[in-house]
């Protein structure tokens, strides 16, 4: 077993054990905090697929995170009120249906955004993804139907067959299982022919093109897949907070997702988990210490980029193998 695998297993076990222990001690809040970590890790894992494997630095993944969130919010609002959404289609409060809608919507939007954005590269790609996310953001802020800037409240968490999702531990377990499935999927993709081509396209575009693989289609597929995972996380996030608002779509959110990926280690299987855990822990611990906590957070982030190359996993598990 390699050191990285060991660290990964430790992370997975810790993320499960901590909320179980908190729950046994009656500290429901820490279960909620662990749920937040799991969901942010899932969102960052989505980004890691595009960014870590494909080298596609998307500065607009908040758009997909928010689309997932709004899919959950809007469907639930209609599910409660019984009013149809469009053309007589009903809303729903069933999580699996909501997840499907979130994933499908994000896929369609990502296909559009990706098709235009992937014509560019480098800094232009960073900026055009940002621009598309800003469009979605301003649309959500100004569109009055679903709360605009005030956002949309989901009073009761959506339902999952056979589980009471309002019990914090149950909801955590749902998110945890989805996270593990997504991590497994990520590992499969990374090891597949598609994953190899994607990584090769990152490392040497011309060589890939000369052996007859079109980098554009590979990248577009990766971008869409990446968006759907982040959107799924967005739908869960809406259920965690029982609330969605345009701030899920803001460029700060895009920035935070990138921060999570880099903190943990770009392209690493469990990087997003490590990054999300560290970030949420910092935000939580510093926030109650000083009102200037963002200053300290900034210093820590800066220190990580400058001196801890490869993120947390790079620190604890050594350099990534080139695969």
């Amino acid at each position: 077993m390699t050191r990285e695998n060991l660290v990964n297993i430790l992370l997975a076990v810790a993320l499960l054990a901590a909320p179980l222990a908190a729950n046994a001690l009656g500290q429901a809040f820490y279960v909620t905090l662990a749920t937040r970590i799991a969901i942010l890790a899932l969102a960052a894992l989505g980004l890691n697929l595009a960014l870590g494997l494909g080298g596609l630095v998307s500065f607009g993944h908040a758009a997909f995170f928010g689309i997932g969130g709004y899919a959950a919010g809007i469907l639930a609002a209609h599910g409660f009120s019984g009013e149809p959404i469009l053309f007589g289609l009903p809303g729903t409060v069933q999580m699996p249906v909501i997840w499907l809608v979130a994933v499908f919507t994000a896929a369609v939007v990502a296909l559009l955004i990706g098709a235009i954005s992937l014509r560019t590269s480098g800094v232009y790609f960073i900026m055009i993804t940002l621009a598309f996310a800003q469009m979605v953001y301003y649309f959500a802020v100004s569109w009055p139907a679903y709360g605009g800037e005030d956002g949309l409240s989901v009073l009761v968490r959506n339902q999952f067959p056979g589980l009471n999702t309002m019990v914090p531990l149950n909801f955590f377990l749902i998110c945890y299982v989805i996270l593990l499935v997504a991590i497994a999927l990520f590992a499969l993709i990374r090891a597949s022919r598609f994953g190899a081509a994607l990584q090769a396209a990152r490392q040497n575009e011309i060589r890939v093109a000369t052996i007859g693989i079109g980098p554009f289609r590979i990248r577009l597929t990766a971008f869409v897949l990446s968006a759907t995972i982040t959107a799924l996380a967005g739908a869960l996030y809406a259920d965690l907070n029982r609330f969605v608002s345009p701030s899920m779509l803001s460029w700060h959110m895009s920035g935070e997702l990138i921060v999570l990926v880099i903190l943990g280690g770009v392209g690493r299987l469990f990087g997003p988990v490590a990054g999300a855990a560290l970030y949420v822990a910092f935000e939580f611990a510093l926030g109650s210490l000083t009102e200037y906590w963002q200053f300290v957070l900034g210093l820590i982030l800066l220190g990580t980029v400058l001196f801890v190359r490869g993120g947390l996993l790079g620190l604890f598990a050594g350099k990534a193998r080139h695969g």
């Binding site: 630095v57 480098g122 990138i258 880099i262 200037y292 957070l297 990580t304 980029v305 400058l306």
Partner: peptide, 18 residues
């Protein structure tokens, strides 16, 4: 560019709160 984005993002936090 990724590291640059993150480092200068951190600088924003430091400058604003400072």
């Amino acid at each position: 560019h990724l590291d640059q984005v993150l480092a200068t993002f951190a600088l924003i936090l430091i400058f604003s709160e400072g």
